[in-house]
Design a protein around this nucleic acid. Sequence first.
DNA 1: TTGTAAGCGTTATCAA
DNA 2: TTGATAACGCTTACAA
Lengths: 342, 342
Amino acid sequence: MVTIKELAKMIGVSPTTVSNVIRGKTQEVSQQTIEKVQKVLKEVNYIPNMTAINLAKNSSNVIGYVMNAKGIIQDNAVKDFFTGELIGALEMEIRKAGYYMMIYISDDVEEIIKFVSSWNVDGLIALGFTDDNAQKLREVYKKPLVFIDGHFYDDGNEYTNVGLEDYKGAYEITQYLIECGHRRMGFFANNYIGINHERYRGFKDAIKNAGLPEEAGEQFFIEKSEKGIKRCLDELMIRISDFSALFFISDNFAVVAMDYLMENGIRIPEDISVVGFDDAAVASLVRPKLTTVHQNPTQKGRVAFEKLMKLINNPDEKAENIILPISLCIRQSVKNINSRAI
Amino acid sequence: MVTIKELAKMIGVSPTTVSNVIRGKTQEVSQQTIEKVQKVLKEVNYIPNMTAINLAKNSSNVIGYVMNAKGIIQDNAVKDFFTGELIGALEMEIRKAGYYMMIYISDDVEEIIKFVSSWNVDGLIALGFTDDNAQKLREVYKKPLVFIDGHFYDDGNEYTNVGLEDYKGAYEITQYLIECGHRRMGFFANNYIGINHERYRGFKDAIKNAGLPEEAGEQFFIEKSEKGIKRCLDELMIRISDFSALFFISDNFAVVAMDYLMENGIRIPEDISVVGFDDAAVASLVRPKLTTVHQNPTQKGRVAFEKLMKLINNPDEKAENIILPISLCIRQSVKNINSRAI
DNA sequence: TTGTAAGCGTTATCAA
DNA sequence: TTGATAACGCTTACAA
């Protein structure tokens, strides 16, 4: 790898001059020298050393993408539809903006903090952060930072976040279930914090506001692993006739559950109705097509990155909580069980 | 951010000593000093500056993941099931090994080369490379490099690659179609190079070796975009009765096509049979369940990274072409159309 | 056992 | 318009 110093020697000018023409600081260099230098630059195919640049400039040209995820030490964290698409969208935006993307996933915020600090990333997109975690990160990492799907209590800090109408989405689809006559609904999530909590709140409130008893909605825990899902559904099967509808926190779960149920002779939606959340590609590919709440991970990524760029390029840019709208996708997995009789 | 120099001053020792205890080169330091230093290290929560370390050591601690992809400038390259899972698997392995992961996707090999060179990545996992591209990369990038799903002509270079029995998989599933009585089969791919070409060869050879005429297999181009898929299928519909089976180069295509066909009143497999390739999660989630060729992206990633580590840690490690086995997943999307009469 | 100083490849300040 | 030179934060001979 040829260095600026070597180039300078070859051309017969100083490193400063070479550096200047490389960086386009041409108002300080004579036309003659510029051409001389550029000619050689082409010839030797000079490639700048990012590490050296970053050390000198105290920046990094990297945008970090960090995920605070549980149980990912031995498991693939990008297997679900949402994350994959989000990463792809971000990669594209980051690259188009001339930055580089580093990915770091961990269940330990301290490690994430170490990562962003030691790499001195110029900007950060952070997933899976709530409350204390977010605060910890914010305390240490002082550069532009936008959360995606973050969820924070009011601690006096201002967080920039790109989220979704999670509460509203869950509320509306639950309302839809109720309109369809469902009175015994199961709610399935792998945890009940952050956006999952919001969705659960929407579910509960829709039930309450419809004047239904609390027992109309029952809460289940489901694990992300294949085995965990199966275990949860095995248990469900014992009491399956207690329910007329199942609400899964994500299409990933919903779609696996549908498969499981149908394999066990349960018809959807004739025997039981199912709804999901996210409107992943798979939702409209399965049969029956899944009724769900629409969101767009690519858009989420793009919006998040746009905001991050503003934060980077304009010191006066304000923190902001951007909430993207949802919409219902009514498809085929819910049955209207209202009795026909009036 | 506190630096080693500052630490040294605080403690009253030299930077060298501090550096030594940080890096665990403790045989050269007295127990007393070690403790003194470590105490302060904890107190101030020292975080090393990666950039400086890398510049000094002429390494980077980063593993690059590069994709040579067409038409990704304006599109999300990680939207398909395979890529997302692969990235997730690699992220996990890379992190567990103490490295950091950078992602760079481009349709321009020169840019990819610039990326790996300027960041001086310690190792590289490369996707979507064939022939000239691979050679170019190899010429410039001299550190450990393993391709995934690469495909190269014999140019005298030795490439390390992790691939799949693509030819065999396509051959066997085509054979299966033929056994089921299919004599007019469409083959759909977005390109016919690299592993796609191998799969196509398998398809063609199975037909030839079964003594069938060439016309038994017809080749189609299909684009990756939603619109492109639709356009291709619109055209297919005109002549749909010419075919009894459709072979899609990936489950992504197959599953979207199934949806399209069923929406257009075509029954699968009664009216037409469909097979895919990859055995993505979605394959067993759709109805009818998709008959396909199994592979495991997580395993592919793991194997690739293991080999990369060997290459990094052992200068004598040899280049190697690792071919992972396939297996057939016979499910529900193919109909046996042999006449019952003997 | 500890410390000094050069070096990694840039940028940036300031003098010439 | 150009060029020394210091600085970025660390590692590593080598000297003490």
